[in-house]
């Protein structure tokens, strides 16, 4: 399966936001599993690092949390996007697209020479 990629600084927040947008309210464990699944198990994610990231987003007002009950009847803390979070996601996704395009241009074989 080769080496797993580390999660880049700053991209974790974007992944969390996107996950919450797609799935709606979700608890930390669920988010972690979802990120792993989406990345097709190619990311090495320490689940623990997710919690400070969630806390940061909550402090910034991008997400809100409340206690609820999981699908298997476990008590769990659920996070959901706020309106500000949606905007932040939009902004960061756009920024990411741009970065990706720029880097891609550098890496693609030079056509004009």
């Amino acid at each position: 399966m080769g080496e797993k990629a580390d999660v880049w600084q700053g991209t974790l927040a974007l992944m969390v936001l996107k996950t919450l947008e797609t799935m709606g309210a979700q608890h930390g464990y669920g988010i972690a599993r979802r990120i792993e699944q989406v990345s097709d198990n190619q990311l090495s994610l320490n689940y623990g690092t997710l919690y400070p990231a969630l806390l940061k987003l909550e402090q910034e007002g991008a997400i809100a949390s409340e206690w609820g009950v999981s699908e298997n009847n476990r008590k769990a803390k659920f996070y959901k996007l706020t309106r500000a979070g949606r905007k932040q996601l939009e902004r960061e996704a756009k920024g990411w697209e741009q970065t990706k395009a720029i880097v891609a241009r550098f890496l693609s074989p030079a056509e004009e020479a």
């Binding site: 464990y29 599993r33 689940y47 999981s70 769990a76 803390k77």
Partner: peptide, 16 residues
């Protein structure tokens, strides 16, 4: 509160 959250996280993972 955080201890409770971690506990619930671990519990769900163990269940799975």
């Amino acid at each position: 509160e955080f201890d409770a959250e971690i506990a619930s996280h671990l519990q769900m993972h163990i269940d799975d």
